[in-house]
Design a protein around this nucleic acid. Structure first.
Lengths: 223, 223
DNA sequence: CAACAAACTCGACTACAGTCAACTTTTCAT
DNA sequence: ATGAAAAGTTGACTGTAGTCGAGTTTGTTG
């Protein structure tokens, strides 16, 4: 009966993830030693490495769950009838909520997903596809209402918006602004993305209002 | 005579940087131990840590020089008479050249500058100000020629373009495309940024041409 | 110059991620 | 049922970034 081994492996894997889900938030990612996880999961330290390549991988696995939750939350909150910028804000703010709740962990994810150590298509690392797809869907609904140019390549558009979101989050991590200003700046960036700023075809309102980068020294929001 | 101590400190600091400039490219950042640097600089290991906070800091210091070179190169190559997208491409490709030459080191810099461990205004970490200023200047020349909307807040515009550049580089690091496709995609993203994609005010040409994301599995360009 | 303080230097030490070879358990062909 | 092979487990071990307190050099004061 080869099911026994498989079943045990699943249990062990789950025990490691459970330990991580308990200890990472409790004492922080850096402060949690692999040995702590092993003790909590009642296995040897080496065993962990036959389930995960690295400490960071455990984290990434954990966060996959959270991503699903984030997208659920978005679908609940979103009104497909509202304007494209509004829908985008709803989506991005759901994502950002997670960053606020797990600032340290989200930071590591951003680092690894944008600038991975190895070129990798391992989807655990990558920008959540369902998230990118949500952006594309929002753009698509905008196209139906002529709010978005019909010829726009949806993937390109989604990536650009994702770029703006990343840059806004980056500014928050660096400490240029706090979460409230983040919201304002993100809205600003979305507007810029949609309208562009070539020549005179943009509504004036979107161009003249600068980003809020109030702090000379970084803000010190609690982690 | 308090100058002697100061002078000696400068020498030691320089010796560390010289050692790093020799060893990092020779054997790679990760493969170079702090002890190697210390031996090369003929000082104790601990001494290094009274000059630099971490191994990475040494790297960042080193790269500050390179940034100056990059900007020099840009000023030589750039024709201020050419169009805004063309000037931007010149600038970004100068930057990207550095990434190709020092893929590993540049990756660490991107990580640290976008998502720093500590909120920090330490300018060593930050996006090079003279680079961001160059983007703003390009936009400003565009405004004079009515190529760029006059009301655009220059900083916002520059940050958006920087976001696009970062996203394009990120895709290259992940392995979505090689350097040639990078160039194509970057041009595409710049066009999108300038024209936006709301409603019908955008030239069609900029919207329908998708990004080139040819690879399902990552490309394996040499480091 | 003596003697004291401040600044600087040092390498043994700590902490921890990740490895590995010995050991245990499961599977399966006979 | 048996025993050999495959799969899984383990903690002692390795490598290296970063710390720390003892020791050394430089600057200063009387």
């Amino acid at each position: 009966m080869s099911g026994k081994r498989e079943q045990h492996k699943q249990q062990t894997r789950q025990a490691i993830l459970d330990a991580a889900r308990l200890l990472f938030p409790q004492q922080g990612f850096d402060q949690t030693r692999i040995e702590d996880l092993a003790r909590q999961a009642r296995i040897g330290k080496g065993t962990i490495y036959s389930y995960f390549d690295s400490k960071e991988q455990i984290l990434i696995e954990l966060l996959a769950d959270n991503r699903l939750q984030i997208m659920d939350q978005f679908r609940q909150q979103n009104d497909p009838q509202s304007t494209v910028p509004q829908q985008l804000m709803t989506l991005f703010l759901c994502q950002f909520d997670f960053c606020r709740q797990h600032k340290e962990l989200a930071r590591l994810m951003f680092r690894e997903s944008m600038f991975p150590a190895q070129p990798t298509m391992d989807h655990r690392h990558q920008v959540d596809l369902s998230y990118l797809q949500a952006v594309m869907e929002i753009l698509a609904t905008g196209q139906k209402r002529a709010e978005i140019a019909a010829e726009l390549d949806l993937l390109s558009g989604a990536i650009v918006l994702h770029a703006h979101y990343c840059m806004a989050v980056s500014g928050w991590y660096i400490g240029y602004y706090d979460s409230d200003q983040f919201t304002h700046n993100l809205r600003q960036l979305i507007t810029l993305a949609l309208n562009g700023y070539a020549g005179t075809n943009s509504p004036e309102s979107s161009l003249s209002s600068p980003l809020q980068i109030a702090q000379i020294s970084p803000t010190t929001e609690a982690l």
